[in-house]
Write a protein that binds this DNA or RNA. Structure first.
Lengths: 198, 198
DNA sequence: GTCTATACCCAGATAGAC
DNA sequence: GTCTATCTGGGTATAGAC
């Protein structure tokens, strides 16, 4: 029933995604999204019956895009170390946005937790996606026992960096902490060689 | 003009503080606070003219309490290392609340940033309070050059732990990360002795 | 599929009686 | 200092014309 061109519905999701990130979910109104899409408020409800439906669509879209990105890294980078480095480097790549609006995943989950919103668990899947992917990389480095702990540690470090970079609007801080993360990664990646033999 | 007993106004600030932490600032209505204080909505405006005024009072109160806590630590713990350990241990102490609502400082600053709220800079003072206090401790350990970097690093680690503990509602993770933080502190505190001589 | 008009509710905020 | 009653605005959501 949808057109060939990924039309209005997709544009709504796209703009809503942006606005939810920039202003927060609760603080973004239908009028805001409608204005961004250049659509009348009334027509909106042809595409989405409730605001929560938009949120679900946005999260779904983020999950797809994240999964796609992780898959791309898996093929583009030959070693697990390089793949994890890619993860770490997105903080530098997205530094400007992070300083302005924080981490898209972290801030959404934090907000939905406060709202006790039914879609919270769905949003948390975004974290789980990264967690499992990172754990998989660490496993491939030979850390089968503590792969998940390492993944959680790296995730937490990233979240902390995003939160403080946002609060202090500090770009140098991001670079500094990213450097420390890469140094932290060194001994971890080296042990992948030494643990070859059972 | 106020009574002897720290009456209604203080109770409003106290309850608002709690509710802002649990539900977020924007998502907490006057009605919510009034109900908690057991006051009529109308009477509310005798004490606070606007919602932003309450927020400012809440932040002011948090700053005072935080400063008091830091001062207490400064006198109760004899060495800078022990004082930093106290800071780290509040994450275990407040573990249950952090898992439910995240870090009170981090989540407030993140929310106000998204709202582009005028009181954001005031809320950020809470971070600055911790930052300067921690930097002071590291300076006392002999790290004059990188005292602020160490403070920021520790703050970031704490924020990350709070965010993920909240998302995954994971108590074991907090303990695990706190242990790692204490281990991270070891070599840093040891160098306080070696740097006695000019 | 897009529009205008409108119903409805809840939020912040005010007036004035007690 | 506390109350009830009320105004106003913005938000979600619906109805129905085009």
């Amino acid at each position: 029933m949808r057109n060939i061109n990924t039309s209005t519905r997709d544009r709504i999701i796209d703009l809503a995604d942006q606005l939810f990130y920039e202003r927060g979910f609760d603080h973004t109104s239908f009028a805001d999204i409608a204005a961004a899409v250049k659509l009348s408020r009334g027509n909106f409800y042809y595409h989405f019956k409730t605001k929560d439906e938009i949120l679900d669509a946005v999260i779904e879209r983020r999950i797809q895009k994240t999964q796609g990105m992780l898959d791309d890294w898996a093929t583009a980078a030959p070693t697990p170390i390089e793949r994890v480095v890619r993860f770490i480097r997105i903080m530098v790549m997205n530094g400007a946005k992070i300083r302005k609006h924080g981490c898209p995943v972290g801030t959404l989950c934090t907000e939905l937790a406060k709202l006790e919103h039914p879609s919270l668990s769905k949003a948390n899947q975004l974290f789980t996606l990264f967690r499992n992917w990172l754990a998989s990389q660490f496993t491939q480095m030979g850390h089968k026992r503590d792969a998940d702990s390492l993944a959680m540690h790296l995730l937490a470090r990233s979240q902390g960096i995003a939160t403080l970079a946002n609060a202090f609007d500090d770009e140098a801080f991001i670079h500094q902490e990213v450097e420390q993360l890469l140094q932290w990664l060194h001994p971890i990646s080296r042990s992948s060689r030494s643990s070859k033999g059972s």
